[in-house]
Design a protein around this nucleic acid. Structure first.
Lengths: 141, 141
DNA sequence: GTGCTTGCAAATCGTTTGCAATAGC
DNA sequence: GCTATTGCAAACGATTTGCAAGCAC
């Protein structure tokens, strides 16, 4: 499906900028930050403003076409995969990895426990990724 | 137990400022932000600097005496309760509530899945709290 | 031509840094 | 007196705001 139609599915009026940003999100499942997206699209769209990247991602989240991750306190990251899944932040390289979600968690949605209306579920893990772990092991020797 | 000894248990050298900040955290289970803690202690310790609040909470986290919450993208919050439990952020009033943790999640610690060394587990829910929900219902009429 | 979208510059605000003053042993 | 702690002011960096210019139907 063209990204143009993909946006329409979420009731988002397509534009050059919006298509480019959604394209980037769909092709780069690395949970990019605003700055990463902006930097990557600067060449393609030389007049692109960082404000537009902010506005567009806010729009995507409001329309349910992307989710905002607050796992990294340094800045916000975005994910076009809106299926329930967990995220792992490596404290060394700051990369964010996808993990399968704990399916038990889904029940919270329907529980509506004590009148709390749960709209979003986030499962965050933090630690050291295998790549950094093996690198740290090498540096010890 | 005196907060003085409580800090010693975590290998933190006590000071007037550190005791006051830990006291505040232990007595106010509202997951305060840096600014809330600073504002609250300004009267008690007029010379208190916000830098000290930042330094102290960083120290607490490093020594395992508190945990940092990144549930709210606007700013970081702190919790002296280091037991595994979930957090609910109300999108309207921005209050953070404690929830019982999904005990299944604890298994991730020991799983060390695919070589990922999980040091921290965070379960975040976002939505509307009962207090705001009933208020919004009133305003509709 | 009306309304939505974009983009620039400035403002804002949370957080960090550098360094000098202070306190505790 | 030495070392760790504190606190101020400045710097930094992510995000927001105000507004004018541009685009689409």
């Amino acid at each position: 499906m063209r990204t143009y139609d993909y946006l329409l599915n979420y009731d988002i009026k397509p534009s050059v900028q919006r298509i480019a940003i959604m394209d980037y999100l769909l092709e780069h499942r690395t949970h990019p930050s605003i700055d990463e997206i902006y930097m990557a699209l600067c060449d393609e769209i030389p007049t692109l403003s960082k404000t537009t990247v902010y506005n567009t991602l806010k729009l995507f989240v409001e329309h349910g076409a992307a989710q905002m991750l607050t796992i990294d306190e340094r800045n916000v990251n975005y994910d076009a995969d809106i299926q329930l899944h967990a995220h792992f932040l490596c404290k060394k390289c700051n990369r964010i990895y996808d993990f399968p979600a704990n399916r038990e968690e889904e029940k919270v949605h329907s529980m509506n426990l004590n009148g709390f209306d749960v709209e979003e579920i986030h499962q965050y893990y933090k630690g050291i990724c295998p790549s950094c772990a093996s690198q740290m092991k090498k540096e010890e020797n």
